[in-house]
Design a protein around this nucleic acid. Structure first.
Length: 563
RNA sequence: CGGGGCGUAGCGCAGCCCGGUAGCGCGUCUGCUUUGGGAGCAGAAAGUCGUCGGUUCAAAUCCGGCCGCCCCGACCA
């Protein structure tokens, strides 16, 4: 492509709306343009990269025997009512009506459509297993689109669906996907790791997420550098550091005045004790009943874990509800002499002595509390979020907690959708069985954004070879000079003939301008031709990743490019 | 949905507090000069000041409603 004819609208300044590097650079390099919140057009430069990612995905999916198909984005709402997910997705589902008033929606994913096809055609165990995949736009009315393309309302996903006759078959399909995903993300040059995840609302028996560490990720994960343990913080275990209680003999409760100290930090400072020796009392409402939660003062509640313990939805109690139940503010709650309600304590506080809690009276706390003597939790459970520096549950190393971006997710679904929709087959014994399903997603834009998040510098993008929109940018310096024009034109034609993806910067612009654009676009190899290099019968060769710049024979440069 | 910020030329912003001719930088167009890290000079085009209403002789500026966008939180296959 000639830059003079290309539509690559680069920007010198950062757009005001973009905060994270990938978003800024995708806009500055003319890859994307925002149309509305969470909705982006893919411009030619960005689309070339997206197509490369999709090609890698296609090759690896085909390799495990998956078959690509293409499904409707416009769906009748009834299909989604069959599985209850019309309600499940709620406001996140884009809804509309056709001219006859029939309820429609824009597909946020496609399990239901796959089930509909399966129930129409899959009749026998002989028809299975199957793996079907699609690379398509999905639409979700996200409550808060953000971070550029990382969380959009319209986005391209590779989604695949496995159909099997039994659990062993599902295990195999799941394993095939795991292998394919490893190859895909390796080929994309991403430093990823796999974490055990909660299955969430998708249901099913197992799931893993493929993550890339990034400070701008929305997920938090615990990683062990020793044994490779990796888990979403939603489920991560850890060996918590024990709380040291003072050796002061019997723990006897004493009410102390703590005026205007409502937070852990304030109480800790006022009473001059470490936050960990305070017991934090939280009140939640689950199934319309209050439940008291107790965790160490320096710990954070991990809501996904609590969700697992309760087995029911919950919400924090409102301040008015707390006033009504306890007769005091939320800042002075405690389990001693508290109103009757179930108490769930985090395991880390169990056995503690000389602890401090609220007195259930404004401006008072209680010291010298002994867990199990002055109050008895109904249940001890792991409610706290694991933290950096705590012990790995599987080995002696310490965990590191980091933010991460989810680029892929694999699920063992089981029969949730096939049962609801009557997608059944006859097994070898002539018995009707629901199809066992798996579902496996990859976010294409997230691959691109992650690649940029982890490969850029102050000047711009640094593309991995597998995803770069062009492999070589050929820069002519002083294009008005006949000799430069002749040489670059000849080289451009030659490089194209050799099968390289080349962006030929034939624009009549000052050198600095072209260099800045080349670095911003992040194309791995820059070849510069100028009157100087022509005189020496050499080219200037720059590798974007190292910044190394050398004046060498063209053949040497091509040698390096060919690897 | 709760909290915060913003909306003025294609992009980045000032002007608003204290009402009175709409400005700066970048980009764009023309000409000349330039040509190794986003050039210089001269000239030019381009803005319903998000939108609707109110106050006023007069509103980008003051008041109110609405819409949109960004950030934090809640939510999230």
């Amino acid at each position: 492509m000639r830059f003079s004819k290309a539509f690559i609208p680069t920007l010198k300044e950062n757009p005001a709306d973009a905060e994270i590097p990938s978003h800024q650079l995708m806009i500055r390099s003319g890859m994307i343009r925002q149309l509305a919140a969470g909705i982006y057009s893919e411009l030619p430069f960005g689309w070339r990269s997206a197509k490369k990612a999709m090609q890698i995905v296609r090759e690896e999916m085909d390799r495990i025997g998956a078959q690509e198909l293409f499904l409707p984005s416009l769906n009748p709402i009834e299909v989604w009512e069959e599985t209850g997910r019309a309600a499940g997705f709620g406001d996140e589902l884009f809804r509309l009506e056709d001219r006859k008033g029939r309820g429609m929606c824009l597909a946020p994913t496609h399990e239901e459509i796959i089930c509909d096809i399966a129930r129409g055609f899959i009749k026998s165990y002989r028809d299975l297993p199957q793996i079907w995949y699609q690379l398509q736009t999905k639409m979700r009315d996200e409550p808060r689109p953000r971070s550029g393309v990382l969380r959009g309302r319209q986005f391209i996903m590779k989604d695949s669906y496995s159909l099997d006759i039994d659990q062993a078959g599902l295990d195999k399909s799941y394993e095939l996907h795991s292998q394919a995903y490893h190859r895909i993300f390796e080929r994309c040059g991403l430093e990823f790791f796999v974490v055990g995840a909660s299955s969430g609302l998708m249901g099913g028996t197992g799931s893993q997420e493929f993550m890339v560490a990034s400070e701008h990720g929305e997920d938090r994960v615990a990683l062990c550098p020793g044994c490779g343990y990796a888990a979403n913080l939603e489920v991560a275990a850890s060996r918590a550091i024990p709380i040291a209680d003072p050796d002061e003999g019997d723990s006897e409760i004493e009410k102390v005045s703590t005026p205007d100290t409502r937070t852990i930090e304030e109480v800790s400072k006022f009473l001059k004790v470490k936050p960990e020796r305070l017991i934090k009392t939280l009140v939640i409402i689950s199934e319309e009943k209050p439940v008291m939660l107790l965790i160490a003062g320096d710990d954070d509640l991990e809501e996904a874990k609590l969700q697992g313990v309760l087995g029911a939805p919950f919400r924090p109690a409102h301040p008015e509800e707390i006033e009504e139940l306890f007769g005091c503010e939320a800042g002075f709650l405690g389990p001693v002499n508290a109103p009757q309600m179930p108490i769930i304590a985090d395991s880390r506080i169990m056995g503690g002595k000389h602890r401090i809690t609220g007195a259930n009276e404004n401006h008072f706390h209680i010291t010298g509390v002994e867990v199990g003597r002055h109050f008895k939790p109904d249940q001890a459970a792991n409610l706290r979020a694991a933290r950096s520096g705590e012990g790995c549950p599987n080995c002696q190393e310490t965990l590191r907690v980091t933010n991460a971006i989810e680029i892929g997710h694999i699920f063992k679904l089981g029969t949730k959708y096939s049962s609801a929709m009557g997608a059944k087959f006859l097994d070898a014994n002539g018995k009707e069985q629901p199809i066992i399903m798996g579902s496996y997603g990859i976010g294409i834009a997230r691959i691109i954004a992650c690649a940029i998040e982890s490969n850029h510098d102050k000047d711009g993008i640094i593309w991995p070879l597998s995803l770069t929109p062009y492999e070589i940018v050929l820069i002519g310096i002083n294009m008005k000079e006949a000799e430069v024009s002749i040489q670059t034109e000849a080289l451009y034609a030659d490089l194209l003939n050799q099968g390289f993806d080349v962006l030929f910067d034939d624009r009549d612009l000052r050198p600095g301008f072209k260099f800045k654009d080349a670095d911003l676009l992040g194309i791995p190899y820059q070849i510069v031709i100028s009157p100087k290099t022509i005189a020496e019968d050499k080219v200037e060769f720059k590798q974007r990743n190292s910044g190394a710049r050398q004046v060498i024979k063209l053949e040497e440069a091509l040698q390096i490019i060919r690897g």
